[in-house]
Design a protein around this nucleic acid. Structure first.
Lengths: 343, 343
DNA sequence: CGCAAGCCGGAGAACGCTTTCCCTGTTACG
DNA sequence: CGTAACAGGGAAAGCGTTCTCCGGCTTGCG
């Protein structure tokens, strides 16, 4: 039971008829690169197309050409500024390259991620970009890998964001190095007693950042006491909870809390403030990512900058590049702000 | 010159052969609703599909069925939390309904928006959701409308977010009413002297919020002096600039600054603080939207809550609903926090 | 003037599916 | 036991494109 007024979309056939040419000619005039079509014909077709307001059916083109111009983008949570900034870069670069982006969100579930990869594969995208925050100890891991390898075998490109342990191309982020540098600079500012809020230990990104930070401190013979490292959700609320956990066991003489991501740091800031502790004065806080909002919290947060939009762009660039082994790594830079005054 | 190892993807044909059945039967077993296929055949097909790791080619399905399961989502800026929250809702609801989301960003340009709508139309999506912040005085407006109407004529659904002046379905947001209520409650708190930072006057959303606010004040005989209303970019930096503009002409006895969106309010907060003015003490600030970050700025921002994720869900629900005239409106609620202490 | 060599339009196959239609069982009922 | 009804598999016709041929026309050259 269709709605009566529903008209079938204009097809290339209609355009060809209107222009009085063959289907082939119409196709060539509108897209079909290579072969030339005589100017008189060409303009007849173009006019007809415009008159009828023709839009080529992308699905039909895809099936005829045996391939799409689609980028499938998988993120953990699009409302998280980390991912939305990366997505912005991916989308921008894709549009510049004439690619359409289809997007799905895993909601941080690896089961869901696998499911989505499988579904997305049906799209026959040119490129698949995975910017989840993956855990490394999953049983699904192997299934995911083989799914992706099957995809690559049919000519698709897979690019991960910050996932150097998987057998795929990745735009690597200097997580460990950045955190190490941050530790050094904080030590230089005079900090000696640290606590840390991290995500699940299986989260590669969280792990790299924490271990980089720890290493950086170790260079100066500083250690974070085991009980001053709390692991929570890798979210704003996780940061909030983490700070409270730290608070609950007594801050004692802790001078600085390092949260492995800015969203966590921001949550921690709020928790501290609610407890009547003034961040930046009573205790210092540092994060990682340099998401836009950290400039607007109080005090502005010291962090490690990742050019997130650029990360997204690079992912597309990597996917589109022809030479394989060009694994790309993004440089991070420490940004000190008022949340870590020098002591 | 293809890469040598590139294998053609598994097709339904392959599955049928492997299972020793006809194409038709294979198709029916894997998707083809209606007709039953005998259990023995069905499982043969399913096994074969699993063995070959078959994924149906969505493009081919689309062309055969004459329609996709795609939602095209257009936003102004995916890195803006307002839009990314809405997008989260759209994506979530779409996935629940078995729809794939393709996304494009207009970067706040109406020319680009038109271009994208045209391009997206080629996808033959089931639904198109436009969550731009549209201006009303565009020459492109008519072109956009007719493009969208053409899309609807072929059976597509168009849903706008918060755009009640266009001849399309929309999930309406109580912008004016919410702002009016905010004004009332601020007056009740004891505020009398206001300033406002707004976006371009042609931006419907900004206009509605400002005029609602003004009306709300008028109920108590309060006016905002003309020179205390500054119009800037509808972004964080716009808010920052707006506050500085206000500062430049002297705050005098202004008690509260109303910014028509939270991102602007957050920018304003930073500008004030940089100028050595303590928001929440020296001057009050209120925003609109209740994006997640406003809970974490200092002081926490008073604002008008819009359930943004729900807005996205509703957009999909509206698009999928069969009865046309169900224009949906989202209720907003005032949330008072520390940025507007009672006087 | 004859013929090879472009150029370029058109017919039609192909892409990977769905779906209609046909046709062969099988069941049920008088 | 005859036949009508139905179940369900398979062949083949699409769906809207692209692309490979084919062939007619023009050109150019000996």
């Amino acid at each position: 039971m269709e709605i009566a007024s529903r008209k079938a979309p204009v097809t290339l056939h209609d355009v060809a008829r209107e222009a009085g040419v063959s289907l082939a000619t119409a196709s060539r005039a509108l897209n079909g690169s290579e072969r030339k079509v005589h100017e008189s014909y060409r303009s007849r077709v173009l006019d007809a197309a415009a008159r009828l307001n023709y839009t080529p059916n992308l699905s039909a083109q895809a099936v005829a050409k045996g391939g799409t111009n689609t980028v499938a983008l998988l993120v953990a949570d699009i409302a998280d500024p980390y991912f939305s900034s990366i997505a912005a870069g991916v989308i921008r670069a894709s549009e510049e390259a004439g690619l359409v982006v289809t997007m799905a969100v895993t909601e941080r579930s690896t089961a869901r991620e696998l499911e989505l990869v499988r579904a997305l594969r049906g799209q026959r995208p040119r490129v698949m970009i995975l910017a989840g925050s993956r855990s490394s100890t999953e049983t699904d891991q192997d299934a995911l890998i083989s799914e992706l390898q099957a995809f690559e075998a049919t000519g698709g490109r897979v690019v991960f964001v910050s996932q150097h342990e998987l057998p795929f191309e990745t735009v690597a982020i200097e997580n460990a190095e950045g955190a190490k540098q941050l530790a050094r600079e904080l030590v230089a500012l005079g900090y000696r007693r640290f606590a840390a809020i991290t995500g699940s230990r299986t989260l590669l990104t969280a792990r790299d950042r924490l271990s980089g930070f720890v290493e950086g401190l170790a260079e100066s013979g500083i250690e974070i006491p085991e009980n001053r490292i709390v692991a929570t959700e890798f979210t704003r609320d996780g940061g909030f909870d983490g700070a409270n956990a730290l608070l609950a066991q007594g801050l004692d003489d802790t001078e600085l809390i390092f949260a492995v991501s800015d969203v966590m740091a921001v949550g921690a800031l709020s928790a501290l403030r609610e407890a009547g502790i003034v961040p930046g004065e009573d205790i210092a806080v540092a994060g990682f990512d340099d998401i836009p909002t950290v400039r607007d919290v109080t005090p502005p947060l010291s962090t490690v900058n990742i050019p997130l939009v650029e990360v997204g762009r690079r992912a597309i660039a990597l996917a589109l590049s022809t030479d394989d082994t060009a694994n790309d790594t993004i440089t991070t830079t420490v940004v000190l702000r008022d949340s870590t005054p020098s002591r």
